[in-house]
């Protein structure tokens, strides 16, 4: 019915209800190849739930999510990752007891099965890739440090790095700059722009300056539905958006 294959991600008629409460209600949106899409909206609008649905953490009640023509709603989380979708959580979730190197190494896309992991070798290709990614996320000097000792901003970068090393086609970031200092935000914006080359990104963010800086298009969610969609300029001047979200 639609030209789904032109889009990286096609979400159509997506609904999920928790005990009768519709967190996401008949939601549709499409993400283009190479696009940076930012999802904004007031608290409880269902932003994080949308990411949960795409990455398989939550099962959809209705609707479809197609990623490069592949239906994701029935797939297991790890299969969705293998299909090329990477997800960063709101709170930095990294392995605090492992070193930065080991954090990145575990995310290297090899040895996913038990026996694959038993046979896993830390070869030159792995080391090279880990070092390359560490350089990208400004953590070259911290490779030997236990990740629990990193600053909050560095933890966020580390998690982004853990996604990058998987080489996903679609990267989903949940509030990547929350809790960062101004300097870290600026660096993160540079980082995001660098890593989005050649892949599509969905970002949830509250920081409007940051959104303006990175977004190609913005989707405003409200009560589980799309309230407005388009360029930041257009969305900002949409009276409905001003009323429920930006006006506050």
């Amino acid at each position: 019915m639609s030209t789904q294959n032109d889009f990286v991600l096609a979400v159509e008629g997506l609904s999920v209800s928790f005990d009768g409460f519709k967190a996401v209600n008949d939601l549709s949106f499409y993400v283009d190849e190479g696009e940076i899409r930012v999802i904004i909206g007031p608290n409880g609008a269902g932003k994080t739930t949308v990411l949960d649905l795409i990455c398989g953490r939550t099962q959809a009640t209705e609707g479809s999510i197609r990623f490069r023509g592949k239906e994701l709603t029935k797939m297991k989380e790890h299969a969705i990752v293998h299909a090329g979708v990477g997800r960063k959580f709101q709170n930095p979730s990294i392995y605090e007891d492992l070193t930065v190197f080991e954090n990145l190494e575990l995310s290297y896309p090899k040895g996913y099965t038990v026996f694959g992991a038993l046979a896993f070798k830390r070869d030159a290709a792995v080391i090279e890739e880990v070092e390359r990614i560490a350089d990208t996320i400004f953590l070259s000097e911290e490779l030997e440090k236990p990740a629990g000792l990193l600053s909050h901003g560095q933890k966020q970068w580390l998690e982004i790095g853990m996604l990058l090393i998987q080489k996903p086609d679609l990267l989903m970031l949940d509030e990547p700059v929350a809790g960062m200092s101004v300097a870290e935000r600026r660096q993160t914006a540079i980082l995001l722009r660098r890593i989005t080359e050649g892949r599509s990104v969905i970002v949830i963010e509250h920081d409007m300056h940051f959104v303006e800086e990175i977004a190609d298009r913005v989707t405003v969610l409200h009560q589980g539905k799309v309230l407005s969609e388009g360029s930041m300029e257009r969305v900002k001047n949409d009276p409905k958006v001003v009323e429920v979200y930006l006006g506050h």
Binding site: E77, V81, Y95, L98, Y112
Partner: peptide, 16 residues
């Protein structure tokens, strides 16, 4: 160890 601390992260790094 990773699983013990951040099970979801391991899952969403592609491991069953």
């Amino acid at each position: 160890v990773a699983m013990r601390d951040q099970e979801d992260r391991v899952r969403f790094s592609g491991y069953d």
